[in-house]
Amino acid sequence: MDSLLFIRNELLPELGKGWIVTLKLVFLSIPFGLLTGILIAIGRVYGNRLISSLCRLYVIFFKGCPLLLLLFIIYFGLPSLGITFSPFGASVLGFVICNGAYTSEYIRGAIQSVKTGQMIAAQALGMTKWQAVFYIILPQAFRRALPGVGNEMIYLIKYSSLAYMLTCIELTGAGKIVAARSFRFMETFTVVGIIYLFMVSIATKILQWAEKRLSYPG
């Protein structure tokens, strides 16, 4: 019984504050991560030799490097080069870079799966290469990449918890603090878990809705 009281009076208000930080992290990282992914994928497929190789290296490095390590590099390492970030800023930057790497792979695969005839037909109509890319290739690629990209965004919701390791107090961090103070670890993390499951479920439903809305026959 007093578990429930604890939850209502102490836990939820604190978690509420942390949850808002999580939402801020997520809503900033998703669009910029997507943008990064698109740019890297385009660079990889359509760029010249140099750009393509650089993009390839980007992907190899940031897919192979654990996100937490990347966060440490940004938050603890860069200051020694004179670049400092707030915990929040470092977190967003790390999420965007990492998410961009994984997302770009899905988009690249999708671009390459769009039939080559599409590009030829577009150019035959007089479009420039870039017009063809933006109006014909990318819209189709995006539809194919949607499941993979959507999944990466859902991962982002979960990985946002790592911001706590940089002392950015989001949902998980808020929970840890309350739990450590009150020694009620089970209750706290159960509630925290439920909130994450809730967010993930909603995001999954949105993804499914988007897939349906954007689908076209074939």
């Binding site: 979960k158 918890s161 790592l162 390791m165 998980t172 670890f185 993390f189 994450y196 993930v200 479920s201």
Partner: peptide, 15 residues
């Protein structure tokens, strides 16, 4: 559905 970090805390401190 749960983040790794939350799972670790849940098991380490709770379960």
């Amino acid at each position: 559905g749960l983040p790794n970090l939350v799972l670790l805390f849940l098991f380490y401190f709770g379960i």
